[in-house]
C-alpha cells in the first residue's frame, strides 16, 4: 500500500479501481455522454469504461466546453468516481467542481497503475497495487 499526497481541487471522498491514461484528456468528444465509454479514435483509453473509476491522467486539453461534458456524464451517472492529475488544467478542474467529482492534483501519478485500488479523501491518496 502506498500513500500519496496532492492538492485538493474539489473536496470529497471516493474509492474505486484506477484507470490510468498516459495522455491528456478532453471530455469534449472523447467520451460517449450516454455510456461513459471512451470513443476518441487513437486515444490510449479507447473502448474503456470511465464510469465509477478513479480516472488518472497527466492534465486536461481542448475546448472549455469539456467542463460541461463532464457535468453531463455526471448527471447521466457515467462520470468517474474521482479524478487525479499530475497538474490540473482549468477545464477539467471547473468540470469536477460543477459536477461534484472529488479531484486532486500535484500527485506523482507514475505510482498509480490501471487496476490498482485507489481511495482519495481530501488531498490523501491511498493506492493498493492490483494483486
Amino acid at each position: 500500500m502506498k500513500r500519496l499526497t496532492g492538492r485538493v481541487i474539489k473536496h470529497g471522498r471516493a474509492s474505486g479501481i484506477a484507470l490510468v491514461s498516459p495522455e491528456p484528456i478532453s471530455f469534449f468528444g472523447m467520451v460517449d455522454a450516454d455510456t461513459g465509454i471512451v470513443i476518441e479514435p487513437g486515444h490510449p483509453l479507447v473502448g474503456e469504461q470511465i464510469a465509477g473509476r478513479i480516472l488518472v491522467f497527466p492534465t486536461g486539453k481542448g475546448s472549455t466546453v469539456g467542463s460541461y461534458s463532464l457535468y453531463r456524464l455526471a448527471k447521466a451517472g457515467r462520470a468517474p468516481a474521482a479524478i487525479i492529475n499530475r497538474e490540473s488544467d482549468p477545464i477539467v478542474a471547473v468540470g469536477a467542481i460543477i459536477s461534484d467529482i472529488p479531484m486532486v492534483d500535484q500527485v506523482d501519478i507514475s505510482q498509480i497503475h490501471t487496476g490498482d485500488w485507489v481511495q482519495i479523501e481530501g488531498g490523501e491518496v491511498v493506492v493498493k497495487d492490483r494483486a
Binding site: 455522454a33 466546453v65 460541461y68 461534458s69 457535468y71 453531463r72 460543477i98
Partner: peptide
C-alpha cells in the same frame, strides 16, 4: 461570457446553465 452557441454547448452545456 463565451460558450453561448448551442452548436458548441450541446445538451451538456444547456443542462448545466439551466441547472445553475
Amino acid at each position: 461570457v463565451a460558450g453561448v452557441s448551442y452548436k458548441n454547448l450541446g445538451e451538456a452545456g444547456l443542462e448545466f446553465l439551466s441547472d445553475w
